[in-house]
Design a protein around this nucleic acid. Structure first.
Lengths: 242, 242
DNA sequence: TGTACATCAGTGAACGCGCGTTCACTGATGTAC
DNA sequence: TGTACATCAGTGAACGCGCGTTCACTGATGTAC
């Protein structure tokens, strides 16, 4: 946000120059503040410092603006997940865990995008662009699940990689929606959402036959995690069972 | 819905007789139709066949009506979960699975309640009645988790029962929100949400050390499930891994 | 059993408001020659 | 390099609409005696 945006029309001249972008930013702010349902076209125009008719040059209506935001959200989400996955480095299980945490981080850091993507009531299946963006994001999780499936120890029955990916998605989504959202509807929790999800994923992976002692694959040297990070007990991230 | 409700004022007389209830029902219908954000006080009044001022005799404002619905939703939810849990019969694992399915069934059958409870943006933590109702519902899951924890085979590390309960909650919530919602925002899935969740919970339970061959505890006689129900392969509910 | 009165639930008209959308317009920008 | 013109982006006034909320009111119900 450059300071020029704050100046309003006095210094702006007749043409805004970057109104489409400004409207998207304004809407993001409004959604973060009042929820996807609370934002209005007129309000976005006002925040961008233009007349209420101006947005119609760039978006057919409110819904088109909202789906643009959802779409951009999925793109950023995909980028974040890709970065977290880091092609499975230093080892598949660690990277997999990191993807889950990235999911939470996104919900927390970008409540407006999250809300537009998952809670705005937009029928994702009916909007081809949106659906494609959503699927590209999910594809990151799916690719990670494929790698995990290929690595799974034999002997334990396991579902297809697609289903594993859907499991991870729904775990992450459940924790994020209930406990890691960036707005007032977040529920309080006697632990961090990250620890909750980490334990959940670890138990799940153990159910697939993976050994889940931390750093079991012996790649400690490559592990980027700082020493002293929480949840490092050998028995898992939840302390000692009684 | 009795036919009398449809008649409007002509046969109703000056007093409605049951306006509070009628407003709740009307709001439920509107929320199911247009989402929690889309329903208006005036619309509810219109549907109940009274003037726009009448609702103010029963609810301070729109928000109070909305939280009443959320609260009632949590109460019905609690009842449904309690019934599904059935005090752990015929065996704990089976009953536990059934609780998960009841979660999905609720999301599907009562999209309006579900939306008011989880997606309306109501800050549950700030409304004591609502919070209490929400916690009573969660307590059912928690009690089930306690029983499960007490039963867990020794040797496998496991988290406190509270955390296990939160895991089940978030799994169910994730699957329900993404794939089993009763409205247009539901995402398509190449399998049933029920099967997805069942597999997820089974893998999770296996990760806790439970044997997960179906009906492992030998109480088949008491099992209420009809023969021929899907997902009965011995290796789990997802078919044969390749 | 009847009457007087208090209480309650819903009326209907009115208000100010902000929204979405349209319209003819105008100032700015880009381009052909 | 200059000019004419087309195109584009934003204006501002206006519209109809439905909402939330208030108000004095009135019809119905219940109750004391």
């Amino acid at each position: 946000m450059s300071w020029r945006k704050e100046q309003g029309r006095a210094e702006r001249g007749y043409h805004h120059g970057n109104l489409k972008e400004a409207l998207l930013q304004a809407a993001l702010g409004l959604i973060a503040e009042k929820g996807a349902a609370g934002f209005t076209f007129a309000d976005a125009a006002r925040m961008a410092g233009v007349s209420p008719a101006a947005p119609y040059r760039h978006f057919r209506d409110r819904d088109e603006l909202l789906s643009s935001i959802a779409q951009r959200g999925f793109e950023q989400f995909e980028a974040l997940l890709t970065q977290a996955w880091d092609d499975g480095r230093p080892d598949t299980v660690t990277a997999f865990e990191r993807v889950g945490k990235a999911y939470l981080a996104f919900a927390r850091a970008e409540p407006a995008y999250y809300s537009a993507m998952f809670e705005s009531g937009l029928p994702v299946d009916l909007n081809p662009n949106l659906l494609a963006a959503s699927e590209r994001a999910f594809a990151v999780i799916r690719a990670a699940a494929e790698r995990l499936a290929a690595l799974a120890p034999p002997g334990t029955p396991r579902p297809p990689a697609l289903m594993m990916a859907l499991h991870i998605w729904s775990m992450s989504h459940g924790v994020a929606s209930l406990f890691a959202r960036g707005d007032a509807a977040r529920r309080k929790l006697p632990m961090s959402a990250e620890d909750l999800l980490e334990a959940e994923v670890l138990i799940y992976l153990r159910g697939l036959g993976f050994p889940t002692e931390r750093r079991a694959s012996g790649q400690d040297a490559a592990d980027k995690k700082p020493a002293g990070a929480p949840s490092g007990q050998p028995s898992g991230p939840w302390g000692t069972p009684k």
